[in-house]
Nucleic acid binder design. Structure first.
Lengths: 346, 346
DNA sequence: GCAGGAATTGAAAGCGTTGTCATCACGAGT
DNA sequence: ACTCGTGATGACAACGCTTTCAATTCCTGC
């Protein structure tokens, strides 16, 4: 009884294979008595449709590709990012009866365009989810677009054509974080910018600016430093900021790694967090709750985003278009131990 | 020119489709002039074999399933484990031209057996890699075995039938770590056991015992405490050990999380690491190099193990058996900052 | 120059579905 | 009763490849 085929079922149920196919695919126009006969035959034979045959006949692969920046390319891989991404995508795929194919790749690689083209032509996924920061790399996006495969991007920084995407409102929530810091009494709130390649860096910075204004604070170039998203760059930036005569009482970094760097430097300089300095990050990576003091940050609903992205791409596959092609998933600030009231005296 | 098929290539090259098939599959007995004709036709048409058709005709799915414990089921997910696992498996799959299908699942789930059976019957992967700690759960292993799909387990604790596996020699390297600590002058080396479900916990403990003996130290029940692999349990164990009148000068924990807990507690108690207390862990997770002081630990070559596992399972698929069905991947101790010479006075 | 065997090639039959279209049965409308 | 329309069902041709086995070609040795 290795594997029953559709014709075995048809024979047992006394109908044609087409009718079995109709039942299996939940197509209409099958008398309920017939449906029952077929269903019991399916149960009796433990029949499972053969995916390969189905794919061949229907010209679909039933595969969704999830493409993301390879975390193992880095010294200290931020694997939580990928896991969350996979989790959401897997949940959606399971629900919709698709298979998920993962494809980590390195965007520094010069041949990444060709690599992706090859991959897509060989595997022929029905749809593709492209995660940040790859969703920001034009040659990556273009290579995928050129294959004609439905594509949904996650957190693409810049807008690009009418390509469907799923993102968070970095601007609004960064402003919220800034206002939160201001509400704690901080007047000198510094900002560490991130690597221009990653995420919606610009939006975070603009949110910071807006938050200052909304809190009646003046923007000062003195309080803004560049970083590149690494812990090390956070340390460098912190050293610069904290060695000023009138140092900031709060530092808001565009990602958690840089915020962790800030905390490390403050510790070395003997500056107490949060008593003398409040530190806030962005992304809520696992590290955020592992360091001491635990980091106040902005959560990044990655799983929710990838789940929505999969739903969107499936909608595109099935209907040929996407109703909401610019989904915004809400994010919020997560208050932990690294932020507190501004110190009394400066 | 949507997609060229094998007959398009055959027509252009002036041969039969069977010959094209031979060239594509690198079969022998094709005249090199013929091969060249076919190859240039393939290039001209940008032909890619259709996987679905190929799978249907050959009764293979070209899929390897990687099944592992779902990290997002935990509070603080140890995602590095999964990423490393995926990395090795992906590398091997890419090389052998297989697709990798990932399937995280929760072993606490009572229906996990049925879930896996369903998965395998529907997707029909050609082979399966089962990672620890799932590789230790009898009902999981049995469910997969029952489907008849080739299976290779990673780090199964207990032996089980002649099932092929890939593992590290936890016993030997744990003994090595213990000897290393002894060589630093430590006489009272404590051990924190791990959760009995995870990994080859017994082997680590036995390695510790052997290491003591090899160093001429006496085993003492006083120095062994139970843990459950969590940071919290490491803290609890550390409190117990460090509040003794003659406290240990070194603590070797069966995993890194517990070792991190030890360091945290030592910090709170004002015990300097490594000056007054050496701490060693096991697994070399990302956290190990992020905490301060960076943790001396035992590396776990997860990527190498999953890569070997995939090669083994493919061997099984192709030849029907596996020559080396018990691969041992070497692991070694990684000395960082958390261990040092034993303090002079006790 | 020819038998014999190995190397090379091809024709045709699947593989297990879905898609297309024809057919059939059954009521409603007249 | 008779036609029409609609819902229900089936026959059969794809889908693009591998497999099987027969046919052809090419050598080799005598």
């Amino acid at each position: 009884m290795s594997t029953a085929t559709i014709s075995d079922v048809a024979k047992l149920a006394g109908v044609s294979i087409k009718t079995v196919s109709r039942v299996v695919n939940r197509e209409p126009n099958v008398r309920s008595s017939t449906r029952e006969k077929v269903e019991s035959a399916i149960a009796a034979l433990n029949y499972r449709p053969n995916k390969a045959a189905r794919n061949l006949a229907s010209h679909h692969s039933n595969l969704i590709g999830l493409i993301y920046d390879d975390p193992s390319a880095y010294e200290v891989p931020s694997s939580g990012y990928v896991i969350a991404l996979q989790q959401g995508a897997l949940a959606a795929c399971r629900e919709a009866n698709y298979e998920l194919l993962i494809h980590p790749c390195r965007f520094q690689d010069r041949h990444i365009g060709k690599e992706l083209t090859e991959l897509i032509e060989q595997v022929r996924p029905d749809g593709i989810i492209l995660a940040a920061p790859l969703s920001n790399i034009p040659r990556v996006v273009k290579a995928i677009e050129a294959t004609g495969t439905p594509l949904v991007r996650i957190s693409p920084g810049k807008k690009n054509g009418g390509l469907p995407k799923v993102a968070t409102d970095d601007f609004t929530v960064s402003a919220e974080m800034t206002r939160y810091l201001a509400s704690l009494g901080h007047r000198r709130i510094a900002f560490i910018k991130g690597n221009a390649h990653h995420r919606a860096v610009g939006n975070r910075f603009r949110g910071y600016c807006a938050g200052l204004e909304q809190s009646g604070l003046r923007y000062s170039e003195q309080l803004v430093v560049d970083g590149d998203n690494s812990i090390g760059s956070g340390e460098t930036a912190a050293k610069k900021l904290l060695s000023r005569k009138r140092r900031p009482t709060a530092i808001f970094a565009a990602n958690d790694d840089m915020a962790a760097g800030v905390i490390r430097v403050a510790d070395r300089m003997g500056i107490k967090v949060p008593a003398e300095l409040s530190v806030a990050g962005c992304d809520d990576i696992a590290l955020a709750q592992q360091i001491f003091p635990a980091l106040t940050t902005i959560n990044q609903p990655l799983a929710a985003m990838s789940e929505r992205a999969v739903y969107s791409v499936i909608e595109k596959i099935r209907t040929g278009s996407i109703e909401h092609d610019n989904v915004i998933v809400p994010s919020s600030i997560v208050v932990r131990e690294s932020t507190g009231p501004a110190p009394r005296r400066t």
